[in-house]
Design a protein around this nucleic acid. Structure first.
Lengths: 211, 211
DNA sequence: CGCACACTTGATGTAGCTCAAGCGGCGTGG
DNA sequence: CCACGCCGCTTGAGCTACATCAAGTGTGCG
């Protein structure tokens, strides 16, 4: 009996997660999106390896989120009954899941602040720092940290509640100001973290040891 | 040994919730807010009786949310060790908490869509319907459902990512268009739900049996 | 009675959106 | 191997929804 399974999805494909159980991203980058009939779209989160893809789905809740692979991805799915079993047998397991859910809630509150109250500049600065925080910087970042941006401009725009042109313009402006370089599509280089941090009015999770 | 305690707070007072345990709103209305050093503020949620006030706080996470009483409130606090005890003894208790957390996550995703992609009109329409959904409409709503709006315009504005004037103007406009009446401060009357629903591009939780 | 404060209304400003046009890299097919 | 066309990105010009600034209005409370 297979209790944990791995699945692959090509870029741009929808990722199937059961209505129950736990799905974890193993490789690649994904995004969770919510769309409206009239084409408007909100990217709720980008997901990196190690992230759970199912926290919005309760046992009964039918979530309106769609998971899409940004790059080719591998996901691990743990069947619902296995999760329940583990949860009943080891309380700490369930508590750990609960902790992940609480962190997600806390983070979503932060994102509401970004979408509700921040300027385009601030949103982009925060976005770049978030992406930096989830890249493996092998120790030092001096001399410029290279950040992978595998998603396209539209995904970034829909994540930040902006439009493509504004994202592009703001990135160009940062480049002109020497805050970043854009050597090739899908990549940004942050020479010095400090000025970006100065533009971002919130502290970014996972960026403690840097700057 | 008291395992569950009730506390009262006057309007505008901060509500103390422990860093752990479960706190439930029993009476009144509260809000969860996140503020920035420069006075910008995001109201993350309004809370009505029955709502949990602590879902953003994990066992370790230090949340940046502040809970404030909108009206005088009563809260019930269940101590952390009691929650943990119950969770370990009855798996379904923990699963129920997890379900609440998942619903919260799902709802927050929806709110991101509102703040990221919707017009002032749409935000206000959604807000009015949300508030309607949590008022006790004793059966029929024909002849006009009266909705309590105990929070002030600034709270509404900060909840919707707008400013006070835009909230006021949009409400006035709805009134002029006959969608609502504003008989006295702190109250709105929705004559017919259908036109408001038509303005709101999403389905509102808990509004199924109406309209 | 009159002050204070929440709300409304009006006039003006502007950040970001829309529309439209280039640019460039990459894959395809001749 | 090169030409072509597609598509993602950038850049520019002008517009608009909402913000900002500035008066009113009314209501409750001392």
């Amino acid at each position: 009996m297979a209790t944990i399974e791995a699945y692959h999805h090509p870029a741009s494909a929808e990722i199937a997660t059961g209505s129950d159980g736990v799905t974890i991203l193993a490789e690649g980058m994904a995004l969770a999106e919510r769309t409206l009939a009239d084409e408007r779209r909100q990217v709720v989160a980008f997901r990196s390896p190690g992230d759970m893809l199912c926290l919005d789905r309760g046992v009964v809740t039918t979530s309106r989120l769609r998971l899409v692979a940004v790059t080719p991805v591998t996901v691990c799915r743990v069947a619902a009954d296995v999760v329940r079993d583990f949860g009943r047998r080891y309380a700490s397991f369930h508590e750990s899941l609960m902790g992940a859910a609480c962190r997600e809630i806390s983070w979503l509150g932060e994102r509401l602040l970004v979408l509700g109250r921040m300027s385009a500049q601030e949103r982009i600065a925060i976005f770049l720092l978030e992406m930096l925080a989830r890249t493996d910087h092998n120790g030092a970042t001096d001399g410029g940290a290279s950040v992978r941006l595998p998603m396209n401009r539209e995904d970034i725009a829909d994540y930040l509640g902006l439009n493509v042109e504004t994202v592009s313009r703001t990135l160009s402006r940062f480049k002109r100001q020497g805050l970043i370089q854009l050597p090739k599509p899908g990549r940004a280089v942050i020479g010095d973290i400090a000025p970006l941090k100065a533009l971002a009015p919130i502290r970014i999770e996972g960026l403690e040891g840097l700057g």
